[in-house]
Design a protein around this nucleic acid. Structure first.
Length: 117
DNA sequence: CGCCTGACAGACA
DNA sequence: ATGTCTGCCAGGC
């Protein structure tokens, strides 16, 4: 299996596990998928979903500033609505509180090493 | 092959 | 806070 195919699969596995009301960042996904610093590639994978299908909670992925990045491809309003429906609250400047909303998988929480795979 | 553009992020001015 | 620069690398032209 090619490296990018593995990367993609790992990203999607992680996204599928994000609980309602919590979020993960692109850089975090890349890190846990074994490619620290490849946040842009994580975004590239998410972009391929183009929203909705796959039954994945794609809306639970935001950038490192707690802001929605899908505004660039026209999915911003939808993502915001879905997150609010999840119970996530945003401040007046459109940011959510990452320190209380960012979710880390159990495996990554206990061990000192952040990489998951 | 080169050049440019991205659902990004961190460092720095 | 805002803007610039660099690292990341797939895909379009």
């Amino acid at each position: 299996m090619t490296r990018d195919a593995e990367f993609r699969r790992r990203i999607l596995d992680l996204v599928a596990r994000i609980p309602r009301g919590r979020v993960m960042t692109y850089g975090q996904l890349a890190l846990l998928a074994g490619q620290p610093g490849a946040a842009r590639q994580a975004g590239y994978v998410m972009n391929s979903l183009q929203g909705g299908d796959h039954g994945l909670p794609w809306q639970r992925v935001v950038n490192a500033q707690g802001r929605i990045s899908t505004t660039k491809i026209g999915l911003g309003d939808l993502q915001l609505a879905l997150l609010i429906h999840d119970g996530v609250d945003f401040d007046s400047s459109g940011r959510l509180n990452l320190s209380e909303r960012q979710w880390w998988p159990e495996e990554a929480q206990e061990g000192g090493t952040p990489t998951l795979f």
